[in-house]
Nucleic acid binder design. Structure first.
Lengths: 232, 232, 232, 232
DNA sequence: GATGAATGAGTGTTCATTCAT
DNA sequence: GATGAATGAACACTCATTCAT
């Protein structure tokens, strides 16, 4: 019966909900007060649970923080991996990954804010630090760039790891403009930024380079950009 | 009196030395323990001064932090402004600014580490945060990019502010690779990274774009690149 | 109903078992972590019952502690009373009581450890404290010593209460040597200690006092020492 | 100069005073609330200092507790060692040690209460526990008893360690009677108890043993008991 | 009865800041 | 100015106790 199954699973479900509620609350508080400024009491209040319950679900403050990053970051990484394999050409893959980053921001700006502003700030002793997170994405993106290099889609004298670092640096700073409120978070500015990041990374900011991507984007509903059309 | 006059300048000099010593110590401690992890006691010990003396030179911890960033950042900004006016062409200016960033890292990696890893940590309320610093460079660089756009040296449909954000994002992440120890801090890797950052920003990572810069760099001792030649 | 009647006795037995299991577990945990260091969670885990169940059987932690001491102590007191009446002479009664103490330790060293190390440590406000327990045995033993004094078996100028205190102090410290592991818990050392405690209390440590007891003990199977013979 | 020396030493002296004040306060609080029941806040308030100052002088609560015991116990041990060498005969030495214990109680009953009731509470992990303290006195006293045994002043078949344990057990329990308030803390009862403890340990409680000590004590101002005469 | 999640008061500890010398 | 002892607010963490299921 439905009731039976719910009885068997309900406690587990309720607990899982609580756990999620606390994680969400933590993200909320982090985005307001920052990694260090957040207090367990704030998280508990935000989640609407008792102080001690946080310690029922998480070993200590560090583990809570780690879980927040782990959850957000692993979700982001999974989407990046997926996106990196989505297009046939290097350009399409780069475009996909940029798309994932901006899409993540559209869906959950607070979580992205936390990831951007707080990941990796803990000295280096902390369980979560830029080191691990940074290393992981860079590692992933490096593979993409190495393959592209083998296919002649990336300048042969560029270091793939550095490419990866710059790639995410450009994305991060682009999003930071929104996160910090320097750019209005409107869909058109977001979309323009997304395009600009992609194009700058691929073709640079100098004019006189081929404008294939640009042409495609500006011409309405080009059949070669189905993903972007859906996204927008 | 003689005593007075002797005290007039000497202490002033000594005091300034103390102040600098404390600032240096603060940078040292920040780079080790991070913005929040540092304690006044650590800074005092590192500087070799008494605990309470820190409070003679700085109002409170926040002011100390602010001074650290102010000192480092304003120095960096001044150099960026200088560099931005150094070249005749847009490309040269971009190259100069990238050069300033990498040169800063060569000279004082710990200070750069602090600026990169710690600026913007304090929840937006803090005196020092990514907001102000970010806003300032972006503002400066925007002018560079707007001028370039007027001169037809920057793609006309790009947003100058976003350009600026991506520019510094690429630089920051490039340096982060070194700061975090993912890339050996050797002069040749630093120089290669510097070139790659410049070129990627200007021409993108895709091959098939003109290779003016690359050509100039790879040809030995081109008269048009005196700065880089000296640096290397 | 059938269900009721079946539940009438069986659960009662099971409940009693549970209660005992919790008490045993408490003794176990106390002997490991001490009176204050023990947590309800530890006791529950040790007893193999659910956390909350402890609160079905005991009002609160204090009541649990009290029950532990009550159970152990009342059992010990009952045996002491019995022993105090067992012999015909004062010497035999003293010997009996010492025997009870050592026998208790042989049977349940952990419980004795708890009683010795933990009884009476709670600040005098606590429900269980040395005061009550101490008062009780001293009271009992005093009667024994007063009677002995009336019979001329105890030095007439000695205070019976102080005698009682010293008597149990000597026993306690003797056992403490074993509890703390300073003396190997072997039957022969235990038996020797038991004899020594008795003799010292009755005749002192100085040689040249009559050795009646000693003689009796060393002569094998003296009919007047059936208990010791059986014990050994 | 006096001023110089006071300036050189005064701070150290003041600090030492503070440290002592905190230790005294800790003893006071321990004697009221027990080892575990005491809170740092209580100690600070009792000492009349700020909360945080306790942590200026002591690493943490455990170190404070340890210092309390260390201070009290080492003082007691030193006096015991001194006393153990004071007399010519075994009897006199035993009498001296008993005298030290009772004298300690006369001087500082609260400290003795703490030592008696609280030493050895911490399970066994704690830095201070009955184990160490117990081991130390037993070790010391054992030497006394071994020597006595060599001199034929102690029954040859007695275990010196067990003798030591019983000796201090008798003393401890004797004092416990006062500590717990069962016996009025009047000088005459204290003195009587002191005599009784000594005599019982040496000659036992049974009448018919030689009454040398007793005789000496009861006869007024016997020249052979100068210490007791002075003490009383 | 049995379970263990939920609660929240209590407390040890840190550390920025002040202040007497 | 220089020193470092003194202060106390803030906060992480524990754990006895309650309660819904």
């Amino acid at each position: 019966m439905a009731k039976d199954s719910s009885a068997a699973k309900a406690p587990g479900k309720r607990e899982e909900e609580r756990r999620r509620a606390i994680l969400r609350a933590a993200i909320e508080v982090f985005s307001r007060k920052g990694y260090q400024g957040c207090r367990i009491a704030d998280v508990a209040k935000e989640a609407g649970v008792a102080y001690g319950l946080v310690y029922h679900y998480f070993q200590n403050k560090d583990e809570l923080l780690e879980s927040v990053f782990e959850a957000g970051w692993s979700w982001f990484l999974a989407r990046v991996i997926e996106a990196a394999g989505k297009g046939n050409t290097f350009d399409e893959r780069v475009e996909s990954v940029v798309g994932v980053a901006f899409e993540s921001y559209r869906r959950d700006p607070k979580a992205v804010k936390v990831l951007i502003l707080e990941v990796g700030r803990s000295p280096s002793g902390g369980a979560v630090n830029r080191g691990k997170a940074f290393a992981h994405v860079i590692q992933l993106a490096s593979q993409l760039f190495e393959e592209a290099q083998r296919n002649g889609e990336l300048k042969p004298d560029h270091d793939p790891k550095l490419c990866a670092a710059m790639f995410f640096g450009a994305i991060e700073m682009g999003l930071t403009g929104f996160v910090m409120g320097f750019i209005d978070r409107r869909e058109d500015t977001l979309l323009a930024a997304q395009r600009q990041v992609t194009e700058t990374f691929l073709r640079g900011v100098s004019p006189g380079t081929q404008r294939t991507l640009e042409a495609a984007w500006t011409s309405p509903k080009s059949s070669s950009k189905p993903k972007l059309a859906k996204r927008a």
